[in-house]
Simulated scan of single mutants.
Amino acid sequence: MGTDNEIEVWHAMRATYRRELDAVHLLEKENLGCFVPMQYKVSIRKGKKVRALVPVIRNLVFVHARPSDVQRVKSQITYLQYITDTRSGQKIVVPDHEMQRFIAVAGTYNDHLLYFQPEELNLSRGTRVRITGGDFAGQEGVFLKVKGARDRRVVIEIQGVIAVAMATIHPDLIEVIK
């Protein structure tokens, strides 16, 4: 397939040995779009509390580029690998609308977001909803009870890769999608 008729898609990838931030710098040098879900963590260094922005899930990088560009850069960055679907063996490609929704939520670096591996949640037990107000207005997800939270939360999932549960949202700001 020629590079002229390829479209840019989101690839779910791993950067082994905690080198996701190195991979992001190299990808940005190549003018390729990328996203790593980050979160603030408080740790103690030399007896002082330090608040630092760190990756939520180690080794996870989303790359927005044409497949041929990813293949070219991947040959230069040996520790960058595709994440494949365990059932089909196919590379995981995330639809743009799913990725935009995920970035809109995960890109806030909100301390109240909870992240899960896909197998930790049963989204089929929840209700599809749209948020009508507040910081996440317009976002759609699944409303369900998640572990680690007292109340139900709206969850946005990237199939087979990661899921994020938003901060508590008042029920008046949620509408059910039929």
Rank of each mutant, 00 (worst) to 15 (best):
N5S: 12
N5D: 11
M13V: 08
R14T: 09
R14W: 10
R18I: 00
R19S: 15
R19Y: 11
R19C: 01
E20V: 05
L21W: 01
L21I: 11
V24G: 05
V24T: 12
H25I: 12
L27E: 10
E28T: 12
E30Q: 14
G33A: 06
P37G: 07
M38N: 13
Q39P: 01
Q39T: 15
Y40N: 12
V42E: 15
S43K: 14
S43Y: 07
I44K: 07
R45L: 15
G47I: 13
G47E: 13
G47F: 11
R51E: 15
L53F: 10
L53C: 13
V56T: 15
I57D: 00
R58A: 14
N59P: 07
V63H: 08
V63W: 01
R66V: 06
R66G: 00
P67W: 04
P67V: 06
P67K: 11
S68E: 05
S68P: 07
V70E: 00
Q71F: 01
R72K: 14
V73E: 02
K74L: 04
S75V: 03
S75D: 06
S75Q: 09
Q76C: 06
I77W: 01
I83Q: 04
I83H: 01
D85N: 15
G89Y: 05
Q90R: 13
K91A: 14
I92L: 11
I92R: 10
I92A: 02
V94Q: 01
H97E: 13
Q100W: 01
Q100R: 13
F102V: 03
F102C: 08
F102W: 02
I103P: 01
A104F: 13
T108S: 08
Y109R: 07
Y109C: 11
N110V: 00
H112M: 08
L113C: 04
L113V: 01
L113I: 04
L114Q: 11
L114S: 10
Q117R: 14
P118F: 04
E120V: 00
E120Y: 04
L121V: 08
N122C: 08
S124L: 07
R125P: 00
G126L: 04
T127V: 14
T127F: 03
T127A: 00
R128K: 14
R128N: 06
T132P: 02
T132K: 09
G134Y: 10
F136T: 03
F136I: 00
G138D: 08
G138W: 03
G138T: 05
G138Y: 03
E140A: 03
E140F: 06
G141N: 03
F143G: 05
L144G: 02
V146A: 10
V146E: 09
G148H: 12
G148T: 04
R150D: 15
R150W: 00
D151N: 13
R153V: 10
V154Q: 07
V155H: 12
V155Q: 08
E157Y: 04
I158W: 06
I158V: 15
V161D: 11
V161W: 05
V161C: 06
I162V: 15
I162K: 05
A163V: 02
A165L: 10
T168A: 13
D172K: 09
L173H: 14
L173N: 14
L173T: 07
E175M: 09
E175T: 14
V176Y: 08
